[in-house]
């Protein structure tokens, strides 16, 4: 685990590189077409990266979540997605149902073990 000074420097550097996209958008606004192939590729890369991040946290987490069961995490995802759609794209319903099932499954596991 890196020290806090090291994390702090990394945070500021990450803040800067994140802002670069926002700044670039200001400088080029009105001069670039947001529907070009280049844009499409960049958004595919960003999307795939975030999908990879979430897949990794759910399937192979580190820290606290590593102490929970993979089946419970996957079940929570499935239930949250179902509840979200059943409640007409209501994020709150999805979250509440997913977390409730996750905690409930963990509780039952604790009883059996």
């Amino acid at each position: 685990m890196p020290g806090t000074a090291e994390i702090g420097v990394a945070i500021l550097a990450c803040g800067f590189v994140t802002w670069l996209w926002r700044g670039l958008g200001v400088l080029l606004s009105g001069r670039l077409d947001p529907k070009s192939a280049m844009f499409e590729w960049v958004s595919c890369v960003a999307y795939a990266l975030v999908a990879g991040l979430i897949a990794r946290i759910i399937v192979a987490p580190s820290g606290l979540l590593a102490q929970t069961a993979l089946a419970d995490r996957l079940l929570a995802c499935l239930v949250a997605l179902l509840a979200y759609h059943l409640a007409r794209r209501n994020m709150f319903a999805g979250m509440v149902c997913g977390i409730a099932v996750f905690v409930g499954a963990g509780y039952v596991r604790g009883l059996i073990a």
Binding site: W21, R22, G23, G25, L32, P34, V42
Partner: peptide, 17 residues
Amino acid sequence: VWLSAARFFPMTLTLMP
């Protein structure tokens, strides 16, 4: 992190005008 933030480019591009 830089790549993950690429979505901000088209967003800012369309918002600023």
